[in-house]
Simulated assay, not measured.
Amino acid sequence: MIKQRTIAKSVDSVGIGLHKGKPIKLRLEPLDVNSGILFYREDQGVTIPLHPDNIVDTQMATVIGKDGVTVSTIEHFLSALYAYGIDNLRVVLNDNEMPIMDGSAASFCMMLDEAGIEEQSAGKRILRIKKTIKVSDGDKYVSLHPSENALFDFTIRFNHPVIAEQHRRFIFSKTNFINEISRARTFGFLKEVQYLRSKNLALGGSLENAIVLDDNKVLNPEGLRFDDEFVRHKILDAIGDLKVLGMPILGEYKAFAGSHDLNHKLTVALLKEVDAYEVITLKVNESLSFAKSFA
Rank of each mutant, 00 (worst) to 15 (best):
L127A: 00
L127R: 10
S10D: 10
L271N: 09
P248H: 07
V63S: 13
T6L: 08
G258K: 08
Q44N: 11
G68F: 04
N88Y: 09
V14Q: 14
S35T: 10
R225V: 01
T62A: 05
R169I: 09
Y195S: 09
I235W: 11
K131Q: 14
R90L: 00
K191M: 04
G205S: 14
K191P: 00
V33D: 15
N94A: 02
R41F: 01
E192V: 01
L203W: 07
I7M: 06
S198I: 02
T73F: 08
R197Y: 05
N285T: 07
L242H: 00
K199H: 03
I181L: 02
V56F: 12
Y253S: 06
E114D: 12
Q194H: 08
K124M: 07
D12E: 15
L271G: 13
P248F: 06
I2K: 03
T73E: 12
V244C: 06
Q44P: 01
I64E: 09
T70C: 15
I239L: 13
F154E: 02
F226S: 00
S79E: 08
H264W: 09
P49L: 02
L112W: 11
E252I: 00
I280T: 12
M111L: 15
N285L: 10
G258N: 08
I37Q: 01
D12S: 14
I211H: 02
L50F: 10
I239N: 03
V63W: 15
A80R: 11
L250R: 03
E273Q: 15
G223L: 05
L203F: 05
S182R: 01
H233D: 08
L213I: 00
D139T: 04
G138T: 01
F158K: 04
V284Y: 11
S289Q: 05
F158C: 05
I48Y: 11
G36E: 12
S289N: 07
G223K: 06
R157H: 13
H167R: 15
Y141M: 06
L112H: 08
N54S: 07
E165A: 08
P30M: 13
Q4T: 11
E192C: 03
H160N: 09
D113P: 11
E165V: 01
S293W: 00
T6R: 06
